[in-house]
Design a protein around this nucleic acid. Structure first.
Lengths: 227, 227
DNA sequence: ACAATCAGTTACAATTTGATACAGTGATGC
DNA sequence: GCATCACTGTATCAAATTGTAACTGATTGT
């Protein structure tokens, strides 16, 4: 499930891992490494696989002809992305931070022939994705700029953060533009909001890509999370 | 009060019907009618079924504790909605216009036991839903108020519209508030935008719930559609 | 070494949308 | 028949976000 605002990610992630560990990997299930900037597929490409992210970060995007772009989702470790509609992909997908990916044949999702267990896993990943996207709706449509940014930081923190003393730290491999296009904002608004959060002592940026959460409670307040 | 959706048992419905017709209907596949206002399920309810809309209109909603509401989707004839994440529904679902619904057991989606054909249909409906939600993202995050309203009218027109002379007419069984909560706007903005579209001669309202599209070309322009 | 480029940030003006208030209309109930 | 209520439409004003532009610091290429 993609980075959305809810807190379902962690649990889901853990339930996904075990089933793979004890399987002899079939050919199409081999793990491959992709460098930053690599395109996994483009909008309109024939969809032969869905992709399970083991490490790194992917980015799913769609573009309107007038240049407006939407980041549909970031694919973090544990996510399965690239679910096709019909035969074709309907988004672009590229690598934001060097990633280890397992490609699953689309037929495994669609018919499950020969591998009912993976079929189940992929199906459940699709259902989780629907749920995650519904969370994302709430964010895009019903949250203010500052709530969006706070929610986003919270989500990334929950998925990839690690403790540093009493605080939590994590990196933001994607650009401000990516964050803006994910949240439905402009770069300037995202940047401004980061500044406010810094000035309020809620976060601190060691580099623009390295966030230290100083006051998790306040960040949670600022995000208006549903839980 | 609610205008009956006249001509909606159209294309989508017919493509869906055949597989059912020649089956001995299992109990959970029987078609039932639900009156306006009926709740099919609430957020948190155990999810035992997914619902296939034959006629009428359903509404999927989520609410933030502070009262902000988001209409996730409208279920029109041909749609299958209520895909669960885990065991529970994560939205509310109620009837906007008297609807004929077929409930499919969740197990048919999850395991396909005993009914691989329906299993396939439900799976593909889930994948279609993911694709549709991605479209909705573009709308929520990257379109202006007037583009949103135009896109919405266009979508309803394409799904349920019928020709009237050179024009196209359709009904809007949902309230302005529903439309606003679907598009991430306020009622006032929706109303304002309807007025502008009327003043520009693009649409005409016979009643607030009955739309006549006078200039489909202009409506398409106004929606900034990607195709 | 230096110019050029790019991501990020900041300030300020312009624009869009939201909030508030109120009027009209049709339906419902007493 | 009349009052009430829910929904819709309109106007005005306030607030939030965007657009524009300038500036910084880091990186790249020549």
């Amino acid at each position: 499930m993609y980075v959305t605002l809810s807190s379902e990610s962690t649990a889901a992630n853990q339930t996904l891992a075990p089933s793979l560990i004890f399987q002899a990997p079939a050919p199409q299930q081999q793990q491959r490494s992709y460098a930053t900037g690599t395109h996994l597929f483009h909008e309109g490409d024939t969809a032969n696989h869905v992709y399970e992210v083991k490490t790194g970060v992917l980015r799913l995007t769609r573009v309107l002809e007038n240049g407006r772009r939407q980041v549909i989702a970031f694919g973090l470790p544990g996510d399965i992305i690239g679910f096709p509609n019909g035969d074709a992909h309907h988004t672009d997908c590229d690598v934001v931070a060097t990633a280890e990916i397992v490609a699953h044949r689309r037929s495994t999702l669609e018919t499950g022939a020969g591998d009912p267990e993976t079929h189940q896993r992929l199906l459940h990943a699709a259902l989780r994705e629907i749920s995650a996207m519904q969370d994302h709706f709430m964010m895009l449509a019903r949250k203010s700029a500052s709530e969006k940014v706070a929610s986003f930081l919270l989500a990334i923190s929950n998925r990839t953060g690690s403790p540093r003393g009493n605080f939590t730290t994590f990196s933001l491999p994607m650009s401000r533009a990516d964050i803006a296009d994910f949240l439905g904002l402009t770069v300037e608004t995202v940047s401004r909001t980061f500044s406010i959060l810094r000035k309020d002592g809620i976060i601190s940026l060691e580099t623009p890509q390295t966030v230290l959460v100083l006051d998790m409670e306040a960040l949670l307040d600022a995000s208006q999370t549903d839980d």
